[in-house]
Amino acid sequence: MRHFLAIFAIVAAISAAGLVTGSPALAVEPDEVLADPVLEARARELSKVLRCVVCQNQSIDDSNADIARDMRLIVRERLVAGDTDDQTVAYMVARYGDYVLLRPPFQPNTMALWVGPPFMAMIIATLALLFFRMYQRERVASGSPEPLTPTDRAQLDALVDKLAAEPRRPRRQSGLRAELEQPFGSTGSGGNGSDNPAT
């Protein structure tokens, strides 16, 4: 039994590629399915972006409402009649409005929706940039030392390693202190002389 399951799982994962349909379907009934698999696949894809107009946020592909079934059948009819995907969607929009589209169209009243995320990303990136410019200024202002050159770094690491190798440390570090500094140390020693292709 266990053998069967394991094999099944692997084969299922491998063989799943053939019939890529993607989304769930309680709603699609066997009698709706078109004989032509290409048309049927197109119908399923379209069904996923059309909203069932009486349902709460379900696509017609997910809904078992009567009207969702009517809409699925019409989608298939349009496709069989030779409509393109866009024509089929336009047919639905003409009757039920933009509300029927789960992917809102890009038009004046949805501009903010689509432009919003990239716009916010730009604002956030700008703020981050300003912040780091400020950091640079403050660092100069507060007189923090310049970052170590790779050569200095290697020398310092060597010194630290040497100190660490000594049997007795001058001051025992607290556990928390060690924990705080550990990642720093580990990164630093990762870049020390031996394996660092220092310039």
């Binding site: 009567d66 009207i67 009517d70 019409i74």
Partner: peptide, 12 residues
């Protein structure tokens, strides 16, 4: 079949 209803955009 509810087809005319779809033409009219009927939801219920």
């Amino acid at each position: 079949e509810g087809r005319a209803s779809v033409e009219w955009g009927v939801t219920g």
